[in-house]
């Protein structure tokens, strides 16, 4: 039961982790004129979760969770994820979001968070959000599967929230969209569990439209979100 409550705590959008400032491509897609009503947004969520989260965040969270407090191993995973994340705005956003996440946990006193933050601030490691989540959430008492679930849900909920603030969908329609995505989240987390151990060599993503939108967004003079 403690793991469930720890998961609810960490998946709660009220937990301060800086995530509200990142649309992770949603604002860029809107600027490109993509249809982002409820149906369109659901398609973007499915694409992101299936073709990016499953091959990137999911692996990083799982590997970092397994690494626990092994600093050398966490640094290796973090650097490999950095190298595998090609669009610069995604790299920068993930690193800034990761540092904000560490900032909250360091203030709270979560074991290992303050030292991870020091390593990131001194540029010894990039500080990508999924890697920091895997390491810190283990210290918070989440189990491995719940850590994956919280990561996937956070990605989906963050994009939906961005769509609401951009005025693309209403708040209620956004939650309908998120609710319809839950079976996909469950299937992906189940598949991740069955797939067994992966390595940094397995990092992959294939979201060209999202990547292009994110890169174009970076040069936009007027924007609400960091990426």
């Amino acid at each position: 039961m403690l793991s469930l409550f720890a998961t609810l705590w960490q998946a709660d959008s009220a937990f301060p982790n800086g995530g509200f400032a990142f649309s992770n491509g949603v604002e860029g897609l809107a600027e490109l004129g993509e249809r982002l009503d409820g149906e369109g947004l659901a398609g973007v969520l499915a694409m992101t979760l299936t073709h990016r989260w499953m091959g990137m965040d999911r692996i990083a969270v799982a590997l970092a969770f397994a690494a626990g407090a092994d600093m050398d191993r966490l640094t290796e995973i973090d650097r490999r994820l950095d190298a595998a994340t090609l669009p610069a705005p995604q790299r920068t956003g993930s690193r800034r979001n990761g540092l904000a996440f560490l900032t909250a946990h360091a203030r709270i006193g979560t074991p290992s968070a303050a030292e991870l933050k020091r390593q990131v601030e001194r540029r010894h490691m990039p500080g990508h959000l999924p890697v920091m989540q895997g390491a810190v959430w283990r210290a918070c008492g989440l189990d491995a599967q719940s850590a994956l679930a919280a990561s996937a849900y956070g990605v989906a909920a963050g994009m939906v929230s961005a769509a609401v603030r951009l005025g693309l969908v209403g708040a209620v329609e956004a939650q309908r969209c998120l609710g319809l995505t839950l079976p996909l989240l469950a299937r992906l987390v189940d598949e991740a569990g069955r797939a067994g151990a992966l390595t940094c060599d397995d990092f992959e993503s294939l979201t060209p439209m999202l990547d292009i939108a994110t890169m174009r967004h970076a040069s936009s003079d007027v924007r609400l979100f960091s990426n």
């Binding site: 407090a69 966490l74 360091a106 074991p111 968070a113 303050a114 030292e115």
Partner: peptide
């Protein structure tokens, strides 16, 4: 390990 390097836990 992180704990080895941590100076004092909470920031």
């Amino acid at each position: 390990t992180l704990d080895d390097r941590a100076a004092g836990g909470a920031e």
